[in-house]
């Protein structure tokens, strides 16, 4: 079974030590600025001067680089190609491929959008790499997020791999009783039906038992909850958050400014 069910990498760094909310605000600010600041090179600039340095400061650059090259880069490249070819803007055709034209404008447009998406996904990746989900939820719960909401998010994150493993077990069990899961699509679609029963019914019973188990551990207690982890929120963090908010407002204002 999976020993590690989160992306989080336990290390000690300036970024790891930031309050989780600060990190959340930081990545949202980066994303908003990348999408709104009315300077063409803004997202490129952010990638070089914010995302990469943050990865290094957070001591997760190798992991970040792996995700970026294997996952984010292919996705962003795909987006770039689609937009470069299908964006019907500009006159100045610089490349022709059958009926598809690439113009200087569509190229520039696609490049910026791909970069924006790159920044967005990279920011989230950095966030996940440096933030422990439990700490994030404890912090947000302390700030007023309903605990049920936090519970649903975290348990879903954790349960998904479990569900997957269980589906595998059921498939193996049904297959050993002669279930066909490998021939044509239609046959297989029909043969998936017997899997639904155990998976859904099993899940309902499980949900009931799990509800009992967490209730038995005081989940609905009216006492004020405490947290195992102390999650510091020094005034430096508050200062960063307000500054970021200011930057985002400036960026949006600049975007809306009639030029």
């Amino acid at each position: 079974m999976h020993e590690r069910l989160s992306f989080h990498i336990k290390r000690d760094s300036v970024i790891h030590r930031l309050n989780p909310l600060t990190k959340l605000v930081l990545i949202l600010a980066l994303i908003l600025i990348a999408f709104t600041f009315p300077w063409y090179w803004a997202p490129h600039f952010l990638l070089l001067l914010a995302i990469i340095p943050l990865g290094i400061l957070g001591r997760v650059f190798p992991e970040f680089f792996k995700t970026a090259t294997r996952l984010i880069l292919p996705a962003a490249s795909f987006l770039f190609l689609m937009q470069a070819f299908f964006q019907p803007i500009g006159e100045d055709v610089i490349f022709k491929f059958y009926f598809l034209d690439i113009t200087q404008e569509s190229l520039m447009f696609a490049f910026r959008n791909a970069m924006r998406v790159f920044v967005m996904v990279s920011a989230f990746t950095l966030f996940l790499l440096t933030t422990h989900p439990s700490e994030l939820m404890s912090d947000l719960t302390r700030r007023g997020l309903p605990p049920q909401f936090a519970y649903v998010i975290i348990s879903t994150l954790q349960i998904l791999p479990q569900m997957q493993a269980k589906a595998q077990t059921i498939i193996a069990a049904q297959r050993s009783r002669g279930l066909d899961t490998e021939s044509t699509f239609l046959k297989r679609a029909g043969s998936v039906l017997p899997l639904v029963g155990p998976l859904v019914f099993g899940s309902l019973v499980e949900v009931e038992e799990r509800a009992i188990a967490i209730e038995a551990r005081g989940f609905t207690s009216k006492n004020v909850k405490t947290s195992l982890y102390e999650i510091p929120d020094p005034s430096f963090d508050k200062f960063i958050r307000w500054s970021l908010l200011g930057l985002v407002i400036l960026s949006i204002a600049a975007n809306l400014w009639p030029s």
Binding site: H132, A150, Q158, A213, R217, N223, K225
Partner: peptide, 22 residues
């Protein structure tokens, strides 16, 4: 089914009930 599903380590898991009752 008694694992809360909200915790990543056994230590945290055992602390879950105590967090809930404050």
């Amino acid at each position: 089914n008694q694992i809360s599903g909200a915790k990543y380590t056994v230590f945290e898991e055992i602390a879950f009930g105590l967090e809930n009752i404050g």
